[in-house]
């Protein structure tokens, strides 16, 4: 499902003293199957933007097209949009509420009116893709570890079979291994199901090795929209926006400045090791 944002602005509390322009003339094309990192500091407009992607918010001005159809069309089906664009909020494990893992994951598909059997198949498949073992299906979600809870919450969205998956800080609050595992899982899901994935994060390091395109937001505008390599070459601009480039990339930029001939598309320790051992 392709998404086009055409000069989208969003203003909170218009006409009051609390008026705030959270999105300022955003134009974007998100083609099918892309893996995108959406980066920006707190308050940069990231959350407002993603809420436009599944119709939770509508633009104050401008237009959004899903598969070519305008969100303002009379026959636009908001319910279909919510099914096709799955949103995983920050700390989604706080939204688990059912008595068992499987019931929690079934809630979404049931709510969409999927047939019982279809819903169950979708729920099992979703739990499998996030690496939750079958032995946990009847366990209360409250008895799982933090990382497992988060996986179950993500499965709840996946079970609705979205074509676009948007995740807000999916790795926040997890230990280093947990962070890597959840991001690897998301990368696998994207590869296997060939869906569009938008990863929202503060952390360049987390997204660097996964995504093919980085959109940087600052003060409600799109400050950069390019490949990771291109984005990270603007080290100083990013710092001025309160963002960081991956430690390893920064090291390589510094080595390059001192005259060493090294590549700059290096984001991970593995890549750095290989480049330096050449």
């Amino acid at each position: 499902m392709s998404i086009i944002l055409d000069h989208v602005s969003h203003i909170y509390n218009p006409g009051t003293t609390f008026e705030k322009r959270a999105l300022d003339d955003i134009s974007l094309v998100i083609p099918d199957g892309e893996f995108i990192g959406l980066i920006g500091h707190t308050g940069s407009g990231k959350s407002t933007l993603i809420q436009h992607l599944n119709g939770l918010l509508k633009p104050s001005s401008g237009n959004i097209f899903f598969n070519g159809q305008s969100i303002f069309d009379n026959d636009f089906k908001m319910k279909d949009l919510r099914r096709e664009v799955g949103l995983v909020f920050q700390y989604p494990e706080y939204q688990l509420f059912e008595v068992s893992v499987i019931k929690d994951v079934l809630f979404g598909p049931n709510n969409l009116g999927m047939k019982t059997l279809d819903a169950e198949v979708a729920a099992y498949a979703a739990l499998k893709s996030v690496g939750i073992d079958e032995s946990l299906l009847d366990v209360s979600p409250l008895d799982l570890s933090g990382g497992q809870k988060r996986r179950v919450a993500i499965a709840g969205v996946l079970a609705m079979k979205p074509k676009v998956l948007v995740l807000d800080e999916p790795a926040a609050g997890l230990d280093p291994l947990g962070r890597r595992e959840i991001l690897d899982t998301i990368a696998n899901i994207r590869k296997e199901q060939n869906i569009t994935v938008i990863l929202v994060s503060h952390s360049m390091e987390d997204v660097a090795q996964y995504v093919e395109r980085i959109i940087v937001m600052n003060k409600g505008k799109i400050a950069m929209d390019d490949t990771p390599q291109e984005v990270y070459s603007h080290d100083e601009e990013l710092q001025a926006m309160g963002l960081d480039i991956p430690e390893i990339t920064r090291l390589f930029l510094r080595l390059k400045k001192e005259g060493y001939r090294l590549p700059t598309d290096v984001f991970t320790v593995d890549q750095a090791y290989e480049a330096m051992m050449k």
């Binding site: 230990d175 947990g178 390893i248 991970t268 750095a272 090791y273 330096m276 051992m277």
Partner: peptide
């Protein structure tokens, strides 16, 4: 213990082990 060494420290360690 499911932790990681900071990336630059890790890189130096691996280069060291490889004889650099």
């Amino acid at each position: 213990y499911k932790l990681e060494v900071p990336e630059i420290t890790e890189l130096a360690y691996r280069l060291h082990k490889a004889g650099a």
